[in-house]
Design a binder for these strands. Sequence first.
DNA 1: CAAAAGGGTGACGTTCGCGTCAAGTTGACG
DNA 2: CGTCAACTTGACGCGAACGTCACCCTTTTG
Lengths: 137, 137
Amino acid sequence: MTEKGMGDTLLTIGEMCAEFGVTPRTLRFYEAKELIIPRRVGTRRLYTRRCRARLKLILQGKRFGFSLEEIRQLLNLYDIGDQQKTQFSRTYALGLERLRAMEAQRSELDAAITELRQQLAWGEQILEREDLQRASA
Amino acid sequence: MTEKGMGDTLLTIGEMCAEFGVTPRTLRFYEAKELIIPRRVGTRRLYTRRCRARLKLILQGKRFGFSLEEIRQLLNLYDIGDQQKTQFSRTYALGLERLRAMEAQRSELDAAITELRQQLAWGEQILEREDLQRASA
DNA sequence: CAAAAGGGTGACGTTCGCGTCAAGTTGACG
DNA sequence: CGTCAACTTGACGCGAACGTCACCCTTTTG
């Protein structure tokens, strides 16, 4: 059940960086913060499919304005599908919180977008008028 | 046309902090970065209705993961409604960019919410099973 | 009128999220 | 076998976004 060495395409740190557009420093930093834990062959890091999924979530989280620590909490939630551990319901509750937060953020974002659209519409009108004035001058 | 001393309810720095849940340091910092420019009576700061609107936008922007510098750009856009100045179309273009960015962010957020919902549904099933096992033990 | 409350200006400290060397190791290749 | 590219671990540096502290001024209140 726990996938063995299948078509698992392990990536080196350089390959990871190329794929996600980050620096090695960033990956090592995330590792130090226990956000991504790659396998080791000797001292060399090897990133699994899971690592890639995690990094994707991390970068996504950052774009939403979450801190790395908050993202770490979120990642634990996504782990549940793979490794069901103890403290399940606690993590579950945490996930619910996050969901609420994200839904709240979305509605805020929607409102902000609407406002911005209106401002831009406002702007368009003024631009058109200025164009007319210049055309008639 | 430019509203005079109407029911403009000027607020002191303390009152602003209470209303928005920020510290005086934060407001002075934003002022140093030219995000909010309150009026002065002597040395004392007095925050207008406009200042409040701006602060609201600032805090909103932060939740969306914008930097203060990016937010400053956005604020200039919202100013256009009040003070139509030069460099209008530049700011307008900037606003369009922002709109695109925010719309992109929303669709990302939507996807993330959907994923998270699925994870939580997954979790619920496991929780229910554990409850059944405990009930039958 | 004395003292507390509230506000002001520096200026230095702190945390986060990395960037940037320095110095050593390891694997592949001509 | 050398060397060269890619990797490793520190360690220090840096900009953003404030916190904190010191010290000063004014207003108001018992």
